[in-house]
Deep mutational scan, measured.
Amino acid sequence: IINNLKLIREKKKISQSELAALLEVSRQTINGIEKNKYNPSLQLALKIAYYLNTPLEDIFQW
C-alpha cells in the first residue's frame, strides 16, 4: 500500500492529534498508519478521506 496520509495531512495543516480527534482514534493509530505499521479498515480509510476532503485513492493506493 502506498500511503500519502502524512503528506496530505501536513499540506492541510492538520496535526496527528487533530485528525485523531476527528476520527475518534488515538494519535498513535494515525502515527501507525503514516508509518505503514498499521493498515486502516475500509471504514477508517473512508473517514480519513472524508475529513481531509481528499479522494481515497489519492491517500491510499493499493
Rank of each mutant, 00 (worst) to 15 (best):
N31K: 14
A49D: 01
N4R: 11
I1G: 09
A45K: 10
L52A: 01
Q28D: 15
N4K: 09
Y38R: 09
E57V: 08
L42Y: 14
S15K: 10
F60G: 00
P40V: 11
G32P: 01
K35E: 15
K37S: 11
A45I: 05
K37F: 13
A21V: 09
W62F: 13
D58T: 11
D58H: 10
R27I: 15
E57I: 08
Y50M: 12
I8G: 02
L23Q: 01
K13M: 15
E10M: 12
N36P: 03
R9N: 01
N3I: 05
K13T: 06
A49H: 03
Q43Y: 10
I1R: 13
P40R: 01
R9C: 06
V25R: 03
K12N: 11
K6G: 08
N36G: 15
R9D: 02
L44Q: 06
K35G: 10
L7F: 13
Q16S: 06
S26K: 08
K6F: 06
Q28Y: 09
Y50E: 09
D58L: 12
I59D: 01
E34I: 03
N4G: 05
L42T: 05
E34R: 02
L5S: 02
Y50P: 00
L19M: 05
E10N: 09
Q61L: 07
A21R: 14
Q16I: 12
L5W: 00
I1Y: 14
S41I: 05
N36A: 09
S17D: 14
A21N: 12
L22I: 12
Q43P: 11
G32S: 13
N53A: 11
R27C: 10
Y51W: 08
Q28T: 12
S15H: 05
I14V: 10
R27M: 13
L22W: 13
E18Q: 12
K13R: 13
I33K: 02
T54L: 05
N39A: 15
F60D: 01
T54A: 08
A20L: 02
I48Y: 01
N3M: 04
E18Y: 07
Q43S: 10
R27Y: 12
N36S: 12
I2Q: 12
A45T: 04
L19D: 00
W62R: 09
A45D: 00
N3V: 07
E57R: 10
D58R: 07
L42F: 14
L56R: 02
W62T: 11
E10C: 08
I2W: 13
I2R: 11
E10I: 12
L5T: 03
A20R: 02
F60E: 00
R9Q: 03
L5D: 02
I8M: 06
K37Y: 15
Q28V: 12
N39L: 15
K6L: 07
L46Y: 09
T54H: 05
N36R: 09
N53Q: 14
E24V: 07
L46S: 07
A20E: 01
F60Y: 04
L5I: 09
